[in-house]
Amino acid sequence: MSRTHWASIAAVVLALLFAGTATVVAGEDDGPARAAAPSDSSADAGFARDMSIHHQQAVEMSFIVRDRTDDEEIRRLAFDIANTQANQRGMMQGWLDLWGLPKTAPDQEPMAWMAADGGHAGHGAGSGESADIPMPGMATPAQLARLGELSGKKAEIEYLQLMIVHHNGGVDMAQGCVRLCAVDTERTLAEGMVDAQRSEVELMVDLLRKRGAQVRT
C-alpha cells in the first residue's frame, strides 16, 4: 500500500476521532445549550458544511504533492496542512451531528450563509477556470489533474500556487464566520483558521520565491 493510501487512511481516522470528540464534549452541555442549536440555514451550519468541503480539497492536494516530490520542506508543509485540516473538518462534522443537522444541504447554494454579510461570489484558483467553482479559492478538477501529472519542482510550484489561493479563500470564509456565526466555539475555531492560514500563506510565498516563481493571480 502506498504512502498516499496510508496517509489517506490516517486522515480519515483522525477526522472520525475528532468528530466523535466534538460530539461527546459538546454533548456534555446542559439542556438549554442543546436547545439553542443553530438552524439548518444559519451561518454556523453553512460554514461548517462549506469549510468541510474546502478543507477536504486541501487535504487531497496535499496528499497528491507528497507523492510528487522528494523535497522534505514541501512534504512537511503538505503533511501539516493535511493533518490540521482533516482534524478541523472532523470537528465541524461533529458539530453538525450534535446539532442534528445534515452534513450536506443540496437545496442550499454554497456560500449562501454569507448573504447576510453582503454575499460572496465564489472564485476559483486561476483565471478563466472559475465558472463552476462555488467557494472561494477552490481548485478546478482540471487543476487537480494537472497537479497529479507534475513532479519535482514543477509539482511544488503548482501546489504552492494553488494552495495560496485556496488558503486566501479559506481566510475569507473564516472571517465571514467570525462576523456571522453565533456559536462561540465555532467562531474561535474560525479565528484560529484566519491566523494559521495567513501565516502559512507567508511561508508559501517565500517558498515560491525560492523556486523562482510568483503567486498566481
Rank of each mutant, 00 (worst) to 15 (best):
H5E: 09
I9G: 06
I9R: 09
V12G: 01
G20P: 15
A26C: 09
D29R: 11
D30I: 07
A33P: 00
P38H: 00
A45W: 06
M51N: 02
I53L: 09
Q57W: 04
V59C: 03
S62E: 03
F63K: 02
R66F: 01
D71N: 03
E72L: 10
I74M: 14
R76I: 15
L77F: 15
T84M: 02
N87Y: 08
M91V: 14
K103P: 03
D107C: 05
M111R: 02
W113E: 02
A115Q: 11
H120L: 08
A125P: 04
E129T: 11
E129Q: 07
I133T: 14
M138N: 13
A139H: 10
P141S: 10
L144G: 08
L147F: 04
L147P: 06
K153E: 09
I157N: 11
Y159W: 15
Y159P: 15
L162A: 12
M163N: 15
H166L: 14
N168Y: 09
Q175V: 03
C177V: 10
R179Y: 06
A182L: 04
T188L: 10
E191N: 06
A196L: 05
S199L: 02
S199K: 04
S199P: 04
S199N: 06
L208M: 11
R209N: 15
R211C: 00
R211Y: 01
A213E: 11
R216K: 04
R216W: 00
